[in-house]
Amino acid sequence: MPTEPLLVAEHLRLSFGATTALEDASVAVHAGEVLALMGPSGSGKSTLLHCLGGILHPDAGRVTYAGRDLTAMHDSERSALRRSELGFVFQFGQLVPELTCLENVALPLRLNGASRRAAHRSASAWLERLEVLDVAAKRPGQVSGGQGQRVAVARALVTRPRVVFADEPTGALDSLNGERVMQLFVAAARETGAAVVLVTHEARVAAYSDREAVVRDGRVRTVEYAR
């Protein structure tokens, strides 16, 4: 395992009003590894993922990505980082319903200023890689849940990010579809060398990871034991 982690969260604290979501949470993600964040509902694992991905700003603590302090960055800088070096897959509702699947995958590239044609070329390559090229011209409302999530994975990977954040990516899928999405996802991420931070409460999904961290009551418990 490389000695220098790519993404480090140190002593994060964050509360929403009266409820404390994170309380002194620390975790490290190494380049290229697949880390599962597990824990019961309401433990703060999604919040931790949002902090790691620069979506949420913690009340206290620090998130460092490749030596840069995410928490000290301006919102526009973090947005730019999310566009180019980070990828996101959510449980549902992330695809723009008016755009075709192909256009949805091409969207992050176009947001980064790529030409329409170049963006569409990469996007169809990724759709093919995730075995959903046949739905390229359909709109998200016209494809199945599994296909939609594969499109979402393609969209997260199309910019060749260094970290992909996935929040219950198979949460709305049955086990067979969920397995296929996870297989394709993790294989594709490993191929591009992207690290994956995977929030899940399902052990069989977490089994696709290299390592897991358990979030409980806003703290991270990383278990080390003699094998």
Partner: peptide, 15 residues
């Protein structure tokens, strides 16, 4: 939800 997801993936608010 869609708007929040779009901002999460780095879409500019200007856009």
């Amino acid at each position: 939800r869609l708007l929040a997801a779009l901002v999460a993936v780095g879409t500019r608010r200007r856009t």
